[in-house]
Structures are given as C-alpha cells and as structure tokens.
Write a protein that binds this DNA or RNA. Structure first.
Lengths: 294, 294
DNA sequence: TAAAAATACTCCATAGGTATTTTAT
DNA sequence: ATAAAATACCTATGGAGTATTTTTA
C-alpha cells in the first residue's frame, strides 16, 4: 500500500468516474484502473462497484475511504509542517541571555517572535553568565545566546550586536544621585554591589577593570547573582553598582541611574553554533539583530 | 512522499545505523541511503545527522519521526481493519425478521454474534412482513432476512431453515386449553386474532388456508400487527390464534399454547441478495443456520 | 450504440543491487 | 586502520502510456 495508490483511490471515490479521476490526477485511465485493481487485490476486498456505466463505492470502499482520508491527511499535515519548519515558521528555538540583557532585549524579542512567528516556540533562559552561555551553545542546549563576548571559542559564532555604556546605579538618596553625570573616581570609597566572580562572570571582571582604570579598587563588594536583585540592593542603600545602560529599563524605586563621566563600555554579542542554524533560529537571530539595532 | 520511504526512514531512526536498518528492511544499504537522501530533498531538511561513525536524528528528524509514525500507524490500522473486514470479523450486518421469528431466533442470534464477532455491528429490524423483507433484501436495506418463503424473486436467494408446526394459542381459561392437543375444526366458531392482511402477510394467508383445510372460515378476525400484542390479545380472551411453535418462547400469563391435532406447518427461510455477500454477513448467516438447527 | 472500464502491449523511470570510494574516528 | 555511509553504475520491476476490446445501460 502506497500513498500514491490511496490518492488515486480517493480521486475515483470522489469523481465516481475513472476517466475524470484520471484526468484530475494527470495519468492515463488505464494506469488508474490498474492501480485501483491492485489496491483491491492487496486489501482483498472490492472497493468500487463498477460497470462501464456506473461507479459507486462498496460498503468496504466507504470504510476504506475513511482510512485513506486519515492517512493522506496525516501525510499532508506532515508535508505542511515540514515546509513550515524549513522556512522557520515553526519549531523550537532556545535562547540564553546574560542577566543584563534579560530586562531589555528579552521582552522585546519575545513579543516580536510571538507576533511574527506565532508557531515558533521560544524557550528562554535568562540571568545566565557568559561562560555558561558559551558552553550551552557548544553543547546544543541553546540555539542562540546573548552574551558578553570573550575569548573566541571555535564551534561558537559571535556576531557583535552593540556596545553598551556603563552607568552608575546609585541609591536615590545618595549625594551624587542628582548630578547629570558622575565620575567613577568619586565612587572609590563606596561599597560595590556586583555580579558574582565565580565562573568568570564577565560583568564582574569588567566592573573591577573600570574601577582600576579610574585608579581604585572597591573597598567592599556585595555579590548578587540576579540583575534585578542587584538594583534592589542599590535601592536599599547597600552600595552602588555599574551596569550597562539598557538596565535602565529596570526601574526600581529608590535606585537612580546616573551617566558615567568615564567612557566605560561593555559589548553585547549574539552567539550561535557554527554551521547551519535551524531556519527558525535564523529568523529569531534576525529579529534579535533588528531589535537591538532599533 | 511514499509510505515505503517513511518506513525506511523509521527503520534508520530506530536503528541509528544504515547497515542494520537495511538488513532489517531486506534491502541494500545503498538503496536505503538513496531513499533517505531523496526524502530529505523532498522535505527540504536534514533529518539525520550522520557521519561514517555515528547516526543521530536532527531536530527536524525527531519532528518528522512523529509524523511518520502517525502516518504509517494509520496505514497499519487501515490494513488491519480491512483484513478484519475481509474475514467478516468486523463490519455492519443488517438483518430483518418476520414477527414470529422475533422472539425466538433473534435473541439467540444476537447473543452469539455479540460473543463470537464482537466487532460486527448487528442492525436488527424485527416484526416485519415477508414482502417488506423481500423488498428490503432487493434494495440492499437488509443483508439478511428471516422470512416466510413465498414466490421466488430473482435477486433474492432463499435458503430453507426449518419447518415450524403451527400451534394454537388459547386463553388459559378456554375449555380446550387443558387438552394435550386441539383439533382446528373445534375452533371453527372462535374469533381469530391474526396478523393483518394488508401487504399480503404470509401468516395471515396461511392461517386462513389452514382453517379452510379444516373446513371452516373464521367467523370473526381481530387483526394485530405485533406478535407479542397478538398473544396478549389471546390472553385477554379476545380470541384464539394460530402461531408457529417457536412463538411458545413468548410466555404471556393468561395464554396457553396447545399442540394442533392437524399437521399444519409454515416454513422459515433465510434470504440474502444474490451475489457475494459481505464476509460478515456470511458469518452471521452461518450463525443463524446453526442457531435454527439446534 | 455509445460511453466508459478493462485489457494487451510497450516503454521507461526509478527502486534496488553490486562494487567501489570516501570519510571520520 | 577500519567500519560505515556515500557514490557510481548497472539491472529489472512495475508504473504509466497508447491502442484496442469488452461491456452494459
């Protein structure tokens, strides 16, 4: 039993006329007759009661028609689904994010994917550290990752997205919180709320490097994993923090973001596995690129 | 896309090894490789990530596998169902009965079909007159009919089942109800409860013919369609009746069946359409034959 | 008698086989 | 070095076409 045979049978069952059915299928009437006959031999039942003047479905034919419709329908579904998958209109894309991208890029991307690619399942994991994301891309856990680019690793392709200025997050009551800008050196004696150092967090290292360039080393460090928690700690007066400018979209009462006088920046990049990504992943990558650009 | 291709793909997806899958399918490895490759071309996606040392399903392959399983599963279902249909183990069989077979043959047949052919749907219509049954067989409304054989009609095949003796149904209080037998002539002056004459009921005619042979013509006729109602009327004292002996299984308080001294009989036959009946109808016919024989 | 399905036959596309090459570990 | 998939090439099955016959309403 083959799908072609079933399609032939269904055409005859539809037209109740071998000639017309053959025309519809673009095959000769004789080929159609032969195929239907073979199908009947296979199932061991007469499916069509036919004379030269009349064709009608037998009881068995009516029953078989239901089966044939189910089978060819499932095949059509499969074809349609695979076509959609090939075009990136369906499928699953898992994306990992560093914490500082979680509150800015992530929600916009999720919204656009939901609107433009409703059948694409987006699996999001935010608040991860760049090394974890590198490993996730290599191992296939993630199709895409938004991370702070570090040493190139082969198996991972990096595309620079943008450079983000660092801003200071200060308690609103802080004496420097009302200024237009703040010089990093003026924060030398403050406690710093900072991402954890473990596993080589990129933000941890870059904040300390910036302080170093400003001529000091923070006296006290309060390590906090989640970006949201970090800002809340600042708001609570536990210290100051340096965060990429897009974190501003995370508004927390009691915390104020102030532009740095120093030109400190961190890079944001999109990572993917080398080789052909899935069509859906490519579409999501494109949306991420457009979202960041705007 | 053809079922063969899907089965090949599923074998490889199962074995994750082209050589073993080919062996399982009894085809050469090269043929399998070619078919899988062609399938991938058709769907436009790589379904299997493979090297000479390792074969695994791609994301698209996992997705396609679900489709392929659904499709081939539906095809297997179809084959199994058609096989069962060809063997008469499934399908629908409609059977019509004359009223006097309704209470005897019908329940036994229904029970046996239910037990022995659980997937055969038995559609029963009882309490019909033989001419209606003839027409129903010819028109295809019924696959089988239990009826009183009359003039042969072509398009209808008749198989004699048995000859049933007529017995008298008398009100229990009737003076003749206690005898071992009753002579028909002794009922000459009674009112007769009888099946309707309309549409040439066979029982109607045969009861009157029997009376004629006994030398009388019933003084009064009470016409009743249903056999059960007929016996109830007798029990109520509205008259006497002649019924085929199997109607005895219809026990009604107040009515007594008494053997006739006269050797009057009616025939019961199984009617079916000429030509090949469905396998299920043939099985049911066989069960009817066996049931009546016992 | 005419329309339509079945049959006879021929052809060729393609599934499948054998032998060999390529490739990744 | 070797196991296994891919490739090259050949064969043959069977699907499809043309022409004709058969059938029945």
């Amino acid at each position: 039993m083959e799908l072609r045979t079933l399609r032939y049978f269904l055409a005859v069952a539809d037209e109740l006329h071998f000639g017309r059915a053959a025309a519809r299928l673009h095959v000769a009437q004789s080929a159609l007759s032969a195929q239907v006959k073979q199908l009947e031999n296979e199932v061991g039942l007469v499916l069509l009661d036919r004379s030269t003047r009349h064709v009608e479905l037998s009881e068995a034919g009516r029953r078989f028609r239901e089966h044939a419709l189910r089978i060819t329908g499932a095949a059509s579904n499969a074809e349609a689904d695979m076509r959609a998958l090939a075009q990136g209109l369906t499928g699953r894309v898992s994306v990992g994010f560093v914490g500082t991208a979680t509150y800015d890029v992530l929600p916009q991307v999720a919204r656009r994917v939901h609107d433009e690619l409703p059948d694409v399942e987006l699996v999001l994991r935010g608040e991860l550290l760049s090394p974890e994301l590198y490993a996730g891309i290599e191992s296939g856990t993630f199709d895409l990752a938004l991370l702070r680019p570090g040493a190139a690793r082969d198996g991972v392709r990096l595309r620079p997205l943008r450079t983000e200025r660092l801003v200071a997050a200060l308690p609103s009551r802080h004496r420097l919180a009302t200024g237009e800008t703040v010089a990093l050196a003026d924060l030398a004696s403050e406690a710093f709320v900072i991402h954890p150092s473990g596993d080589h967090s990129s933000m941890h290292d870059q904040v300390l490097a910036a302080c170093g360039r400003a001529g000091f080393r923070p006296a006290r460090l309060v390590e906090v994993g989640e970006t949201a928690t970090l800002v809340v700690f600042v708001a609570a007066g536990l210290g100051v923090a340096l965060v990429p400018e897009p974190v501003r979209s995370l508004a927390v009462a009691g915390a104020t973001y102030v532009q740095l006088a120093d030109p400190e920046t961190v890079d944001l990049a999109l990572a993917s596995r080398t080789g052909e990504p899935s069509a859906a992943a490519a579409r999501v990558a494109r949306i991420i690129g457009e979202t960041v650009r705007d």
